[in-house]
């Protein structure tokens, strides 16, 4: 299982990455995260919504309401330019961390 802290840190880039592929709504975003991670990333679904609101406040994403199946209103999120920039820099950061971790752990394996 992924730790809570890491979950919190990774939620935002994951959401940004999903939205980079096209606009989406809350339920669907969560399902995607779950699918991609193969069940390793799990959260209480309701906790996603405040994060989305926060990202909207920071102008990383925008939202608008649309009527969908069954005439229920649904809030769709779209990534903004600022969000794309943020995603790019997050990707780089994550890559650095990954490389650093790999660099440290590979010799250990070799030493076994």
């Amino acid at each position: 299982m992924v730790s809570k802290t890491l979950m919190a840190a990774s939620t935002r880039p994951l959401i940004l990455a999903i939205l980079a592929g096209g606009k989406n709504y809350g339920y669907s975003i969560i399902q995607k995260v779950k699918d991609i991670s193969g069940g390793h990333l799990e959260w209480t679904d309701g906790m996603l919504y405040p994060v989305l609101q926060r990202m909207e406040m920071e102008n990383l994403i925008t939202s608008n309401w649309k009527l969908s199946d069954g005439n229920r209103p649904r809030r769709y999120y779209t990534i903004t330019d600022k969000g794309r920039d943020e995603l790019a820099s997050e990707l780089i950061s994550w890559r650095y961390i990954w490389q650093a971790l790999k660099g440290l752990t590979d010799p250990l394996k070799a030493g076994d």
Binding site: T44, D45, M47, Y49, P50
Partner: peptide, 27 residues
């Protein structure tokens, strides 16, 4: 259960509201 406890979600929204107040960005 999957959606989660209202109290916890509300606490998160509260944090956002506070942040908005601090940054004067009307939510």
């Amino acid at each position: 259960a999957q959606v989660g406890e209202a109290d916890k979600i509300a606490a998160e929204y509260d944090k956002n509201r506070l942040a908005a107040l601090i940054r004067h960005a009307p939510l």
